[in-house]
Design a protein around this nucleic acid. Sequence first.
DNA 1: GTCAATAATAATTTCGAGATTTCAGAAAAG
DNA 2: CTTTTCTGAAATCTCGAAATTATTATTGAC
Lengths: 236, 236
Amino acid sequence: MDGTARGPKVVAARSLVEAAYETIRHDILTGDLAPGTKLRFEMLRARYGVGASTLREALTRLVGEALVTSEEQRGFRVAPISIEDFADLTRTRRLIEVEALRQSIVFGDDLWEAGLVAAFHRLSKVEEKLPDAPERQQDEFEERNRDFHRALIAACPSRWLKHMHAILFQQSERYRRIALCDRTVPRDVHTEHKAVLEAALARDVDLACRLEGEHIERTLEVLNELVASKALPLRS
Amino acid sequence: MDGTARGPKVVAARSLVEAAYETIRHDILTGDLAPGTKLRFEMLRARYGVGASTLREALTRLVGEALVTSEEQRGFRVAPISIEDFADLTRTRRLIEVEALRQSIVFGDDLWEAGLVAAFHRLSKVEEKLPDAPERQQDEFEERNRDFHRALIAACPSRWLKHMHAILFQQSERYRRIALCDRTVPRDVHTEHKAVLEAALARDVDLACRLEGEHIERTLEVLNELVASKALPLRS
DNA sequence: GTCAATAATAATTTCGAGATTTCAGAAAAG
DNA sequence: CTTTTCTGAAATCTCGAAATTATTATTGAC
């Protein structure tokens, strides 16, 4: 939300709508645009330097992804967050992602394995240097983490299941960034990822699905502890 | 797709974007705008009588619901349909809807039961007179059918599960309208609905979920037969 | 002082012309 | 004959002012 200078947001987009969409989305996911914030057009125009119609289209897209809410004739707001919402989100994502993983392991071929190992490797690299500068690396970590989870379910033949997963996974990024930034609750994400990877490569469907489910649930547990102990607000 | 005059589409919407969105969505769901159709702005402006930016916003919303596709700098198209897509859609919807129903039956109270019975009653009324004039009644049937399926899972406490369901259910409406219009394959939808209702009211979770799953799958079977026998194209 | 009606202000929503990009067909080169 | 380049036409994309609608402030009546 602050206007301090940071590195120019690198957004390779062909249309202005796309660029605005990606930048605003990023600002919402990082919390730079805080949950519940009213999104006035004058403010947005000054901030992102595009016209009203262009902004409107970008915001409409974000409404479709439930990152923004809109009320007829009353404009747009950053979608609120709450621990209850994250609990619901986590359970739903678990249902979808575990089923997708199950199918992916069954259908996955050598190419899938290769992509998976590659994604894990790249994720590991950024996980190593994550403790040094948590904030700086977060964008890269999120990207690698998303790619790894995508690679896990890449061989799932259901486009719709993967589409549902994409929506839910992006939603949870808002909460994940909060949970990962704070380091009060200790957690070894790398080991969790490694365990899932090995089970998947070993084609141990049940084990992989159980580990993946627990891995997904883990972030909720961390956030629950944070809310309980540190009185983390988590309100809109 | 034709420009012939038909009854004025009754759309109670506060904003023009909303009105355009609902009208276009309806035209896509009914097939009035055929799958794969290029959506040029001049054509849409003439047809729906709103400006380019307004249309753009309405279309963007439809892209979010996967009823329209967009390619950067190349405009919008009505999303294609295929029997493979419907098979995938059906399986995914079954996973979601059955899980939502399971939770709904567990959590449902008297008010839920009342709403369910009411929705079933209204659906029955339109199911009775459906054979007389299949085309005329289809809009009303779709609305009542949607309300009934919504009522079934209304007591499910997960907002996300219900959100996922809404997306998938709307998608399947396109295919359902095709399957229900054609009457070559006999089917007693009313009896299927009644069986699910009774199992749900009896709180027989497993039976209700099994019946609901079969009910969902049934439309796919019908459409599969249609494609096989009558050489129904089902391509974009 | 409270409430309702009205005016002033602020924000959202809509439009259509102009900038930019893609597409289709003809002409030229290989 | 095939491929490439060019050019006009057509379509998409963008902007900012104007219209519409909400919100706030003011006034007057009870």
